[in-house]
Amino acid sequence: MSEGQVVNRRQMLKDAAIELISQHGYDRTSIKEIAKRCDVTVGVIYHYFSSKEELFDEALRGYCSEWESIIPMVKQLPLEDGLVFIASRLIDKWRKQQNFMVILVGECVKNPAVHEIFSRMLVEAREALGKYVEMKMETKELSRANTQIILNIFVSHFLTSFIHKEQLQIPIVPELNEEFIRSSVRTMLDGWRGQVETE
């Protein structure tokens, strides 16, 4: 089997694991069901992964990291445009990964493995965004402020809005379109700048 076929088979197994876990939950998804979905034997899965935990962990990790590619794209943009781009890109990614988001919402509280991966995803987001915000403070586009508060507001707002609107389908939450994203970013920037001015 060629290296490309190995990579494709590993990805097929990971995709099936994500799909089944999003439908039935982690505890009710077995290696046997994943094998059946992929039309392979259980032994094939154990050839690539030592356990369901390893398969699941690797599958989720693949959904988490995009920050290294996003931040360089926005370094030269004005702060508002950069933050709008980042938020839009995140929401677009979450929409394309609905199964992943279902797992986060449904499994994060009760499954330590999912909780750890979600925590790591937030850490990666905070580190990358923190560097971006610090850079914008250095260039005086944003006054010096508490970076951790800025990151909490930004990430939490868009993640919560996405979950409420597109996962839980709460009708009073506005559509997550360009107007909503830009208005959110402007409100945040006004608040951050106002906080610094009153200190």
Rank of each mutant, 00 (worst) to 15 (best):
R95Q: 06
E116R: 10
V84T: 07
E58S: 08
V40C: 15
E68V: 09
V74A: 06
S30C: 05
V40M: 07
S119V: 05
R95E: 08
E58I: 00
R95G: 00
P112A: 03
V44A: 15
I117R: 08
G82I: 03
L60T: 08
V84P: 00
V114H: 07
K36F: 11
I31Q: 11
I86P: 01
E54H: 01
M101H: 04
C108Q: 10
I117D: 00
L104C: 13
D92C: 06
W67C: 04
F100N: 02
Q98V: 12
V109H: 13
Q97N: 09
H115C: 12
K93N: 11
V42T: 15
A59G: 12
Q97L: 06
I31A: 09
S119C: 05
F100I: 02
N99F: 06
K32T: 04
W94Q: 12
I34C: 13
K52N: 11
C64N: 13
Q76F: 03
M121L: 14
S88F: 02
I31G: 12
V74H: 06
D92W: 02
V40A: 07
K75R: 15
T41W: 06
V42A: 12
G82D: 04
I71P: 11
L60G: 02
L90V: 13
R120K: 06
E80N: 09
Y46I: 03
I91T: 09
R89C: 01
E54L: 04
L55Q: 10
E66Y: 15
Q97K: 03
A35W: 05
S119K: 12
S50R: 11
T41C: 02
C108V: 12
N99W: 04
W94H: 11
C108E: 10
W94C: 00
G106C: 05
V74F: 04
D81A: 14
I91L: 15
V109F: 12
L55T: 01
K96A: 14
D81L: 11
K96L: 10
R37G: 03
A35T: 11
L55F: 08
V40Q: 06
D81E: 15
I86N: 05
D39H: 15
F56T: 11
M101K: 07
N99E: 13
